[in-house]
Design a protein around this nucleic acid. Sequence first.
RNA 1: GGCCCCGUAGUUCAACGGAUAGAAUAAGAGUUUCCUAAACUUUAGAUACAGGUUCGAUUCCUGUCGGGGCUGCCA
Length: 590
Amino acid sequence: MSLSDVLCKAVIHFLRTQTQDELPKLEFKPTQKAFAGDITLVLFPLCKRLQANPLALGGEIGGFLKERVAEVVDYNVVGGFLNLCISDDYYLDWLHAVKGVKDFGRTAIGESAGVTLVEYSSPNTNKPLHLGHIRNNLLGYSVAEILKAAGHRVIKTQVINDRGIHICKPILAWQKWGRGETPAQAGVKGDHWVGAYYVRFDAAYRVQVADLIARGYGESEARSQAPLLREAREMLRKWEAGDAETRALWREVNSSVYQGFSETYTRLGVDFDESQYESDTYLLGKDLVAQGLEKGVFYKKSDGSVCCDLTDAGLDEKVVLRSDGTSVYITQDLGTAVERFKNHDLDRVIYTVGDEQDYHFKVLFLILKKLGYPWAAKLRHLSYGMVDLPSGRMKSRVGNVVDADELMDEMHRTAREKGVALGKLQGCSDAERERLYEAIGMGALKYHLLKVDPRKRILFNPEESIDFVGHTGPFLQYTHARIQSLLRRTGKLKWQGERVTLAPQERDILKHLERFPQAIQLAAEQLNPAWIAHYSYDLVKSFNHFYQSTRILNVGNATLRAFRLQLAAQTAVVLASALRLLGIVAPERM
RNA sequence: GGCCCCGUAGUUCAACGGAUAGAAUAAGAGUUUCCUAAACUUUAGAUACAGGUUCGAUUCCUGUCGGGGCUGCCA
């Protein structure tokens, strides 16, 4: 039982002697630095309910706790706040109890733990991943890891958009102008290789459109009648008809893209338990549409298209099947959702998708509810803001897209430049050094993107590259490395739980460390890795305070030295664990 | 037009409805015979505006202004 549980129980016990009325929820929080104490109970809600004076009530509760709860050694009341001072023994016992615990802070996955499906990444196979995908991947991966740490079973999945007109375009360009070239021959990753053909297609297509317009076509007509687009449409038609040659071509080109994606994922440090391909799922929703028609959830319009009326929820009507009988985007999403609940016993499904699709998911969930699936309530859209550039939104058409691989290269390069400038890592082999620069560069990138609340847009300025000093990933990594260095030097000292008197800095770290499980739970509830990022930063700040103001090793008292080393070791354990939840490597040295 | 999200130091980010709104960075001043100076200490600097709800509002509600998104038989 955690300390706040103990306190909560005691306070309720006390209040029961005062009243039988329903009690408001008790609110314990860490005491602010400016006041004496460790844990604070906010009295206002209680005062209101009991019609008591804050000072008097605080005194009564404080007195009761001091007398009856061993951990509480003192209290004071300021305004409407009851500040409790916790005994050194409590924190020392706590540290002694957790010091050997592997994976401290993580909740073991219980027998009854439900399965959460986390979908993220969702790439298109016609171009390489960009900065927006990086945010998506880091967010999805981190949330999945946090859920695991909080005791859930998790399946990580990606839906690969591998079919459609946009996939046909680069294939067509390659067929026309590629002369059988392979990515290996071109010397580029497969995804970039395909992306280049996509760009090439688009350029040629635009020339054709301009040409048609010059010959008197209207703009929209020119766009839809350009020969290249007609060819691409024809390719899509053949693909859908199952034409063997087209399918083979498609398979060949896509396979090199997957190789490229795989390298990017590995470098990003993300992974998936399964992948779904739209080429397998794009027809799934059609029978649902038929069922929906029967049930009267959908209706057929005079042109033959099928719609769902959502006006009762304040939304519009939504087309779920085109007039020519083919599916739209939401049709396959309906089908995929049903399929997932058929294949797995799911507790929850999390879709990690940008906030531009908020409306889409609102509609999707609503339609599934209307179709009568009780699990519709278990679907959740993990919506995040776009990554903007100073010039505005990234648009492939404008050509200002920040490529994922290039960005990672640049982070690595910057880490190396800064490391060299600071004279770091001189004792390492070249290979080891590069490995560390990679970890640090990626640490900077990941922390930069994850520390921001997912809902908010991120402004990414390539000119002022991501920081390595201050509130950054490398700052956390550096602290971890320093602790490791400290421990390497003095590995023999063991602390066996002997009593010492806690200095304020030591107590401060202990309080932070003790809060780690709560930080994980909070992050898991809110699906927000930023909580972990901020927790880690606070922990490191308080460790540095301790580190700077106490000479850990230079004390005569061997017990105190051993205790401080244990404190440092536990900080390293928690820090490494927190960083792992963000996908950040905690280096042994740097 | 309708719906949704966002407005906090010069800048980038914090703050389950709680105490004196925290950090980082940029600017100023310091700290290395001492466990890693990618660190630490210190000075100055902010809740877009107007109402409301209440013991208390950056947070909730209404309105105004500003930024973005969605409102496709695209994905």
